[in-house]
Design a protein around this nucleic acid. Structure first.
Lengths: 152, 152
DNA sequence: TGATATTAAATCGTGCACGATTAAATCGTC
DNA sequence: GACGATTTAATCGTGCACGATTTAATATCA
């Protein structure tokens, strides 16, 4: 243990207290995110998707031809993260990537028929996960709203 | 857009709805975790720490000689994640790693005096972050408690 | 029109995060 | 006391996530 008598008691105690509270806060978020990812993993394995890939597919299932930039905005991710992820989805035949003829700086990402069909396979993922989460539904909605307001 | 008239309207709508709700839930957590990490980044850069390294240091500042296993339990991380992270902290002179003489399977991680001293530098990080988060304090506590119950 | 600025995606290097595997030490039971 | 089972870290390969930089295309305006 690190409990030595400090030369400046109150300042040291303040430090300890500040770092402890902070820890509880960022720890909870960090751990929850990791745990949820782990919870999804076995469900998504059946679909051949990782967790971030699943999120990208969710976005595409809502509106399919999207530019990389629009996807990045929806997912809050940089192109340096998305480009390799999309290439892996393309390698699996789930999406197609092609330059926008109207503006060749843009790359348009579109679901293939395979990618569209995968939505049916993914249909039961949410409820399966909710079972594993084992949390009242209303709490989930509440939690979601609070998370949305976090660090905008 | 993907709005074709479905052959089985209700089932298809159910799928859409299920995936939409799920998205809101996992998206919020995923995005919040990424955003908070980004928020910490500039603050921690001054300390020469990454966000996971900071969390590991927080744990060590609370109780310094700890085994890798104990750290992993506190952080909810595997040795495959921790070992390289701890090696980087060791390379920076913040921690020391040595085999436990009583059980040579274990590796004991201890703060160096430099690592202990860094706590003073880190003292103001929590309040700086809270300012940037710009969220009522009570909401944070509430959020933290809910996150803790998530996916245990 | 032609130089300059801006935009969009890709590339590169660093650091997580995990599962699977490995290597070594210790434990249990006989 | 030996030997199989268990425990503990480390290693390896894959896939994010980001900042910084690069490349190419488009926009701007003197």
């Amino acid at each position: 243990m690190n409990q030595k008598t400090p030369s400046t008691p109150t300042a040291a105690n303040d430090t300890v207290e500040a770092l402890r509270l902070d820890r509880q806060l960022c720890f909870a978020l960090y751990g929850a995110a990791n745990r949820v990812t782990r919870l999804y993993r076995p469900l998504l394995e059946a679909l051949g998707l990782t967790y971030p890939q699943y999120l990208a597919m969710l976005v595409l299932w809502e509106a399919s031809p999207r530019t990389v930039g629009a996807l990045g905005e929806a997912l809050d991710l940089e192109s340096s993260t998305l480009t390799p992820l999309l290439k892996r989805l393309e390698a699996q035949g789930l999406v197609e990537r092609k330059r926008d003829p109207d503006d060749e700086r843009r790359v348009i990402v579109a679901l293939t028929s395979t990618g569209l069909a995968l939505r049916e396979q993914a249909r039961r993922v949410p409820e399966q996960l909710l079972c594993r989460l084992d949390l009242p539904l209303e709490e989930l909605g509440d939690l979601r709203e609070r998370l949305k307001t976090l660090a905008v």
